[in-house]
């Protein structure tokens, strides 16, 4: 019997939209039940609007379910979000501290890791300048370097992607893939079925906020791709 990291029981999430005084609500997730096991890599597949992002937010504790329960047996669950809360007039070093603390790392730990962040980002002395002077690629590199410094118990990844220029993209992509392949608990989404097949142990398939199937990665992906082909044929 595997240890359960996060237990999702009959969880539903709806969003309300409002224009002026008129309000309406839409369901994003509809009575979802499954367990996330410790040490596994779970893939999430589904079309746009199937509820993938909402599921990731639910698992990372950013939102609570409207109905049902989500209970976590692990400490820190983090969504891999790059450059969250970056402030332009602060230096790379200051942003690393702020962003790292927002992501849940201790101040003392971040202080200790600061040389590593600088080293990994490859920013050199630019690290001590305000990030308003950075290029987009440099900001992306800094963001990634901070995110990998914070080691959570469960990591949520919305689309596995390298960032930055060509060199850094390869380095960061490799780093993520190694992280996922190691014995860490990871939940990831991707539009690329090959990536999911390669990285995930199990896959959860969502359609219109409902859970279609959860199980062995290859089996679920096969069915998912089959439906995709059938739909395409129908529309042709």
């Amino acid at each position: 019997m595997k240890d359960i990291a996060i237990k999702v029981e009959k969880a539903s999430v709806g969003y309300s939209h409002r224009i002026g005084c008129k309000a309406s609500s839409a369901s994003a997730l509809d009575t979802i039940t499954f367990d996330l096991y410790k040490g596994e890599t779970l893939g999430v597949v589904g079309r746009n609007g199937a509820g993938k992002s909402t599921l990731l937010k639910l698992l990372s504790g950013i939102i609570s379910p409207d109905e049902g329960h989500v209970s976590s047996n692990v400490g820190q669950v983090m969504m891999l979000s790059l450059q969250a809360g970056f402030l332009p007039y602060m230096t790379g070093e200051e942003n690393s501290m702020l962003n790292g603390m927002l992501l849940g790392a201790e101040r003392s730990y971040l202080k200790k890791m600061m040389p590593n962040i600088r080293e990994y980002s490859g920013l050199g002395n630019k690290f001590y300048e305000p990030i308003s002077t950075y290029s987009t690629g440099m900001k992306a590199r800094l963001g990634f370097s901070i995110a990998i410094t914070v080691v959570p118990d469960v990591m949520m990844i919305d689309e596995v992607m390298g960032v930055g220029d060509e060199d850094f993209r390869q380095k960061s992509n490799l780093h993520l893939r190694e992280y996922i392949a190691s014995n860490k608990t990871v939940v990831l989404t991707s539009h690329n079925a090959a990536t999911i097949r390669q990285l995930c142990d199990r896959v959860i398939w969502l359609r219109g906020g409902e859970l279609v199937e959860i199980g062995d990665a290859n089996i679920v992906i096969d069915r998912y791709e089959e439906e995709y082909r059938n739909n395409k044929k129908k529309s042709d």
């Binding site: 937010k57 950013i62 669950v77 969504m79 969250a84 809360g85 927002l102 992501l103 849940g104």
Partner: peptide
Amino acid sequence: NRYLIQQICI
């Protein structure tokens, strides 16, 4: 900070 709170649980 509405965009930030979509990404981080704080």
